[in-house]
Design a protein around this nucleic acid. Structure first.
Ligand SMILES: [Zn+2]
Ligand SMILES: [Zn+2]
Ligand SMILES: [Zn+2]
Ligand SMILES: [Zn+2]
Lengths: 153, 153
DNA sequence: TATAACCTTAGAGCCAACTCTAAGGTCAAT
DNA sequence: ATTGACCTTAGAGTTGGCTCTAAGGTTATA
């Protein structure tokens, strides 16, 4: 067990520890994600170790791609793990993975199109009257939302 | 040469032709991307073939991932190709490719992290007291914005 | 005691690209 | 003449996640 003396942090110190701005910390609090378990008489927020760990959890989840709404759900599991199952956790994670994968597919298609466009154009200083990129955009033969990426050579 | 009779479209017809809503077409017009070259006496927008082609250009560019600001630039090249170079076009395209690639890298990192998380969790109905996903998020050892994705087994 | 550096709150602003509403005018068909 | 489907405009609302401002109160240091 760690019986080290608990460090109490003010918001700017928590900000420093976590890399999240004080504004963002207050914003997260307003949205029910985090809290300062104590306040000074003057109303200053005081964060203890447990508060800090919760904020770090939020930050890690955020970096992993979860939305604040997702994180709200993950946090409610976190505070009462006994009432939730691994499946509850994987449901959230799986949903996020599907979102990310979908976006990835879309971006990969865009990337491919942009690469093809760049390959087709000389990129030189002569005027753009016969620029193949402009022609391709004019022809409308590039990827459509539903269809596969395709470009006519 | 195509001497077919020019089809004049009202906004709902242009909407049908392009798949863009009338709202969106007006929005694009307000932002200087497109225009109706004629209006009826009552003020109804009338689009000719040239207008239609321009709208289709915008739509194609949009599908390719260009922002409306990018498209504004592409359009000003399009109306005066002689005053612009292929390099002007590739500059815009290259910039967009870099943006897309950056986002792609980020999403791939998220995808990998999420996949690792899912692999590590049983996803079963027992309670989450020892859920490895929760532990990983708590440990804060997942991908950080700058660092490579990593997760402790 | 004064100055600076903190802290508080409610609420506004920002970003992109729509999306929709309100209040009204137009047009074709019945 | 009256539906009802269209059209017009200015402007507000949506999304998510901040980011910042204003106006004021507190605390540490010189
Ligand atoms: Zn060229
Ligand atoms: Zn070119
Ligand atoms: Zn499990
Ligand atoms: Zn689990």
């Amino acid at each position: 067990m760690d019986f080290g003396i608990e460090k109490i942090l003010k918001i700017s110190e928590l900000s420093e520890q976590t890399g999240l701005s004080a504004h963002t910390l207050r914003y997260y609090e307003k949205h029910g994600l985090i809290n300062a378990s104590n306040r000074s008489e003057a109303g200053y927020r005081f964060y203890n170790d447990s508060d800090l760990r919760r904020v770090q959890f939020v930050k890690t989840a955020r970096n992993t791609g979860f939305s604040l709404a997702d994180i709200g759900q993950l946090l409610s599991i976190r505070v009462d793990k006994r009432s939730h199952s691994c499946q509850d956790v994987t449901d959230i994670t799986q949903k996020k993975l599907l979102e990310v994968s979908a976006k990835l597919t879309e971006l990969q298609s865009m990337q491919q199109t942009l690469e093809l466009l760049l390959e087709s154009c000389c990129g030189g200083p002569e005027n753009a009257t016969h620029c193949s990129i402009m022609e391709a955009l004019d022809a409308g033969l590039l990827r459509d939302d539903n269809k596969e990426a395709r470009i006519i050579k």
